[in-house]
């Protein structure tokens, strides 16, 4: 038997959703603006100026929604939108994947999860 499992308590997952939205919407504008590890190394070794962008059509470059005068709102809104887009995209991708599988072995056991993820039968 597996020793651990993912919690089946809905409240915990709901709390994680709230934490996610708070982090993306409220905390993100206050994140450190110092260069991160890779940027620091690039700066120290003089190749930061090699950075370029082949993709100029990003709707929210640098995690900011354009046209809003308040920085906190620009960043926070981009964070919220990003978190929701992320949720929707992964949900859709995983739906497509599991849907296909369900079509293939129809009527059989859909299999339990793997790793720490097997859920208790409720």
């Amino acid at each position: 038997m597996k020793e651990t499992r993912l919690t089946a308590r809905k409240g915990k997952w709901l709390a994680l959703l709230v934490v996610t939205l708070l982090a993306a919407g409220l905390l993100s504008p206050w994140a450190s603006s110092h260069p991160d590890g890779l940027e620091r190394v690039a700066e120290d070794y003089g190749f930061l100026n090699q950075a370029e962008s082949v993709h100029e059509l990003a709707p929210m470059p640098d995690y900011e929604v354009a046209g809003i005068p308040w920085t906190a709102l620009r960043v926070g809104l981009a964070g919220i939108i990003g978190a929701i887009v992320m949720l929707a995209v992964l949900w859709a991708v995983m739906r497509v994947i599991t849907g296909r599988r369900r079509g293939r072995d129809d009527g059989t056991d859909h299999g339990r999860g793997t790793g720490a993820s097997s859920e208790s039968a409720q």
């Binding site: 993912l6 997952w13 994680l16 959703l17 934490v19 996610t20 939205l21 982090a23 993306a24 905390l27 993100s28 994140a31 450190s32 603006s33 110092h34 991160d36 995690y63 964070g79 990003g82 978190a83 929701i84 992320m86 949720l87 929707a88 995209v89 992964l90 949900w91 995983m94 739906r95 994947i97 599991t98 849907g99 599988r101 369900r102 859909h110 299999g111 339990r112 999860g113 793997t114 993820s117 859920e119």
Partner: peptide, 24 residues
């Protein structure tokens, strides 16, 4: 590997990771 019951959880973890990556 993925179980259809896990879909919302997988999506939520992706969303959490995205949000947490913003917090330098």
């Amino acid at each position: 590997a993925v179980d259809s019951k896990q879909v919302p959880k997988v999506a939520l973890i992706g969303s959490f990771i995205f949000a947490a990556q913003m917090l330098n």
